[in-house]
Simulated assay, not measured.
Amino acid sequence: MTSPSPIDWSARADLAQDSLDHFYGAPEPQFLTNWVPAAPGSNDTFNYWWLAHALDARLDAFERTSDPLRLEQALAIRSNLLARNEDSLFNDYFDDMLWFALALHRLAAATGDQTFHAEAVAVWEHTVAHGWNDIEGASLSWRTQQPYYKNAPANGPFIILSARLFVDTADDKFLTYGKQSFDWLTQTLVNPKDGFVEDGINRAEDHAIDLQWRFTYNQGLYIGACVELAAATGDASLLDAAERTALTAVRELTTDGVFTQEGTDGDEGLFKGVYYRYLQTLLAVRAVPALSEFVQTSTDRLWASSPVDGWLFPGNDWNAAPTVSMPYSTMLSAIMATEVRARAER
């Protein structure tokens, strides 16, 4: 009796990447259709931050394969994002800009073109100049119009970018701001008992924490913040904090081995992908068998539930095939998780 052939997860990752183009590819300037099947008005929104994560996903493929096509795809996304944003790096949302900056920082490393590194620094400087204040404690606000509203989605990527820029440049300003933001996030939104990360505070100018929003990407961002600051400072205890939050997220936010659906507006489709991306940064420096098992189980479920005519077309619940129109944000999470699995299998 012969045993079944092992699954080629790198081939699956390539198929996932190509499925994005197969289902969602569109002529310029749209570039990627927001929803499939599309409905009237579904492409009216310019999803700046989705494109930033699409750029990140293409860089995952390039790092895995060294295929110049994947790098060309990444560069095309950057060009499309800037063209649709009136050739500006900036918008009103600090988290959006920071997602893009993190991808640009990686693009600089992939290409050797320091233009992209300078753009990442420019975003960092812009967020400090326009979004940093002392309301509710020294930290970064979510967007220009709400300087009083502070949350994990803005401060998390700010910490990660700050730590990475410090490692690159040894400029203390990056580490000073990054650590201050991290301390604020830990003291304000992280449960000291189990490490669960709440979403934000003072949204309605009432000093209240939004306990009702229990999202996977906040957990992923804190994991990434801990890992990157540990690399920047040598403080290994931060890896303990990252592991605690990662395990709590799996315990609190999964059903039958996968993260539950977090919403149907589109943005939520990307949340679990952020968790996988930064979980990978932890697993790269620390073996945590329970978390490795989670990656295996959940991606197995994803691929069991999502094939469509030889392609990958996931829903937000990876235990079931999608039954309604799906945004490409959901596809991006599936791509990112599959890339993590492919890396683990290597």
Rank of each mutant, 00 (worst) to 15 (best):
V197Q: 06
T245G: 15
D210M: 08
D194A: 07
V250N: 08
D210Y: 02
A208I: 03
L238S: 02
S181E: 03
E205N: 13
I223N: 06
L211G: 00
D240E: 14
L221Y: 14
A249C: 10
L253K: 09
N191F: 03
A225I: 13
D183F: 08
G234Y: 05
Q219Y: 04
G220I: 10
Q187A: 12
V197Y: 02
Q261A: 15
T264L: 14
I201F: 00
D235V: 10
K193L: 15
A242I: 02
L247H: 06
Q219T: 04
L238N: 02
D267A: 03
E252V: 01
D265Q: 09
T233N: 05
E243S: 13
V258P: 01
D256E: 11
I201L: 11
T248F: 04
A208S: 09
A236V: 07
H207Y: 09
L221D: 01
T248G: 02
A208R: 09
A236W: 00
R214I: 06
Q212W: 03
L229A: 03
V258I: 03
T233Y: 04
T216I: 03
Y217F: 14
G220P: 08
A204C: 01
G234H: 06
Q261N: 15
T245C: 15
F259P: 00
L229P: 01
K193V: 14
T260L: 13
I223Q: 06
A249P: 09
L253E: 07
T260P: 00
Q261S: 15
R244Y: 01
L189G: 12
E228W: 14
D235I: 09
Y217D: 12
Q212C: 04
D194N: 14
H207C: 09
L185N: 04
E205C: 08
Y222F: 15
R251S: 13
L189N: 11
I223H: 06
A204M: 06
